[in-house]
Amino acid sequence: MAAGTAYTPPAHGDRPARPAKRRTRATPAGMVENRRRSALMAHGVLILGLLIVAFPLYVTFVASTHELREITNAPMSLIPGDRMIDVYSRALLRGSANLTSATPVWFMMWNSLVMAMLIAVGKIVISILSAFAIVYFRFPGRMVFFWMIFITLMLPVEVRILPTYEVVANLGMLDSYAGLAVPLIASATATFLFRQLFMTLPDELTEAARMDGAGPMRFFVDFVLPLSRTNIAALFVILFIYGWNQYLWPLLITDNLETVVVGIYRMLNVGDDNADWPVIMATVVLAMVPPVLVVLVMQRQFVKGLVETEK
């Protein structure tokens, strides 16, 4: 509901009687059975889908709890082994056994975390500010700038990878956190999202704030930020996962600052040698944890944001 519209919540007594949802008593027995059958069907399909998605994850987990020997012996056991603590601590603290310069996984995860946070926070900060400028200020070339930002939608990193690499190399940012994050920070999607959001805020709100003496930055902090809180949370989830899953760009520019996604690839790339499968699988499981955590933690914010209808 829009803030301004005068909406008087109807008293409970005034509400038109809602048609009864469950009319089991009134429906013939055949229909009840039908409904039950379709519910069973729906659940069956959902459970099947869940199993298909979950099974590889389960196998990954199982593989990370055995020794290499047991994994390579076909058929692999589908029951978790007893080497879990050993394998995980090996992965976290030492990395893959048969790499000449193994990076411990905790460091890879730290790199991934820094990159993902820099990208998510950076993108949100830059795009909310640029959307604020575009929506609330009349400056020459406003629309030109907006369309310039918009056009970058068509130019993801993969398309402009060579020039971007050159720029980053010339700036001496190869193999640095800045080099990892900066080229991925400029974001047209987020700018566009915030622009649309700001345009739904009624003009009177801005004017009332102006009457109250709030300058532009004051308005930004006291109104724009709190009113876009839920959108920021949603965007953060998406952008964090986007950042965490980056592969091509970190692969290209990092040497020592290996991210966990790139790390998995390097662990696999051991030529004739046997890959250290338990450690790789443990790394895979570990790599999944932060995005899952972010989703789980932020989900609450999500739901709250959806239920709260303040704007």
């Binding site: 803030a3 301004g4 009624p202 009177e204 709100l205 004017e207 009332a208 009457m211 109104f223």
Partner: peptide, 12 residues
Amino acid sequence: AMVFQNYALYPH
């Protein structure tokens, strides 16, 4: 001080 048609209260 101004009173607006749709009140323009601060929703948050």
